[in-house]
Amino acid sequence: MSVATRTDPMGVETGAQPRADRDWANAILGGYVVVFFAVMFLPLLFMVAAAFNASPTPSVTDWQGFTLRWFRELPNDQRMIQGLWHSLLIAAGVIVISIPFGLSGAFILTRMRSRGSSLLYTVLVSPVLVPGIILGVTTMIFWRDFFGVQAGLFTAMAAQSSFIASYCMLMFMARLQRQDRVLEEAALDLGASPFMVFRRITLPFLMPTILTACVIAFLQSIENYNTTFFAIGGSWTLVTEIGSRMRFGLSPMINAIGVIFVAITIIVAITHTLVTRKRA
């Protein structure tokens, strides 16, 4: 990868920056970007490679032969499987909570005209701007102090939902701001009840964003560590389990999980890119 060399559209040498200098600058900039991406990807590459190394400590320098053993061992790891199940359970709960909350917030904020809307907006986006561990801590304290609920899967879900709902709300607001409000008026004028307008006009308009928000909420929930770590108490998710194993030492099984994560990410990202490009 390198940067496109820009040619002066006028074909005129401009005084301050002669062409040759600029080419040099562009070359350096291009080289820098290459290094940046190399640093981004090389560690991941090492991690992937080590997943196929027979060596019991993850390594690429000490190659003891190709193996798929670490992948085969994954399904036998009860705690990991249980963690995955917990993760999916939490993610499902997070989606069920965040989407309606996010939608409600977006509907109210895009229509509210009063001065209170700024305050409401600040309150509703604040979870995004607050460190995750604080969300975890406050959720844990709150549910125990008020309802006697011990930290566990439920509190983890509540803590995650508090900020994932904000993300969803921001996505819905962005979409709603592009909505032609006249459509709703037209529907009302034709005799539709507000509920019918909502069902036939507003919801179909939001549907693609709702689907995207579900995917994003799911991913955010599955991948969350900081908040979950504090809110989940004695239970665990796939990611907190990975985290606690990492602390106690390295196992190529973690690499194997990493490979699966990386593969899924790459497939989704490339598919998304191809689909959006085809549409464009």
Binding site: V182, L183, E185, A186, A187, D189, P204, F205
Partner: peptide, 21 residues
């Protein structure tokens, strides 16, 4: 009486056809 209950119909400047129907 709300717009949905009046014997009027409005044709909007930009027509406001429902694009998804």
């Amino acid at each position: 009486i709300g717009p949905n209950n009046r014997p009027t119909a409005l044709i909007f400047q930009n027509l406001a056809l429902f694009p998804l129907m």
